[in-house]
């Protein structure tokens, strides 16, 4: 039962883990380039940093494909994953448009991308929650509720932080940092939930 969903959720977990690793490598390589690469006259150091950044970006793209593959598979058993899949596609389109444009036009698409990303995460969590109902797994059900609320609250706080930063230029750097930490927290909650969901899908799992 739910074989497609089981396999899809495992792909989603792999995607989330790969994305986390790619993100961490990207941050580390960017920091390295910023603080060490600039001072270093050694072109080998700069080239190494460039290839690490490239590898991290490739990891991010692979994670995206894995996420799409997982959602496409899981939607055969649970339509909520299909909705999440649609929002991932919307997010990709918006990202491309915002990258190749500028000004308000770009900002609007960038904003829509953020909402689409949130909705893709929310529908993924709700899809897992729906499966947990089928499995009668109370722990994943209650974690699903907490994750849904957490994602929504983190998003609302991040939006509020950005609006406040427009009117308080003196502390906009601090607010931007706070928003980044909040987003990181939201992603950690999502990652934890997907990992728990993947375990639920393991054969012989006793919740």
């Amino acid at each position: 039962m739910y074989n497609n969903a089981r396999s899809g959720i495992k792909a989603l977990r792999s995607s989330a883990v790969l994305n986390t690793i790619a993100g961490a490598v990207y941050c580390a390589a960017a920091m390295f380039t910023l603080f060490v690469g600039r001072k270093s006259a050694d072109s080998g150091v700069v080239l190494a940093a460039f290839f690490i950044l490239l590898a991290a970006a490739a990891g991010g793209v692979a994670a995206l494909f894995l996420q799409m593959k997982g959602l496409a598979r899981a939607r055969r058993d649970e339509p909520l994953f299909g909705t999440a899949f649609t929002f991932v596609i919307v997010g990709i389109i918006c990202t491309v448009v915002s990258v190749f444009t500028a000004g308000t036009f770009s900002n609007i698409f960038s904003g829509v991308n953020e909402v689409a990303t949130l909705l893709a995460s929310l529908y993924t969590v709700l899809g897992v929650y729906s499966l947990a109902l089928g499995f009668d797994n109370k722990r994943v059900q209650s974690a699903g509720k907490v994750t849904t609320v957490a994602l929504a609250v983190v998003f609302a706080l991040a939006v509020a932080g950005r609006i406040i930063s427009v009117f308080t230029p003196a502390i906009d750097f601090a607010l931007d940092a706070a928003v980044s930490v909040l987003n990181l927290f939201g992603y950690a909650v999502y990652l934890t939930y997907i990992s728990r969901a993947a375990k639920m899908c393991d054969p012989g799992y006793i919740g």
Binding site: I108, L119, L122, Y123, L126, Y129, G144, T148
Partner: peptide, 26 residues
């Protein structure tokens, strides 16, 4: 099941208002 219904309904309502907001902005 009730949570699922409430959550999807809330998301749809939020999406509706967000769409109106973005349309006004554009």
């Amino acid at each position: 099941m009730k949570f699922l219904q409430n959550a999807t309904r809330t998301i749809r309502v939020c999406c509706f208002f967000l769409t109106v907001l973005v349309s006004c902005l554009v």
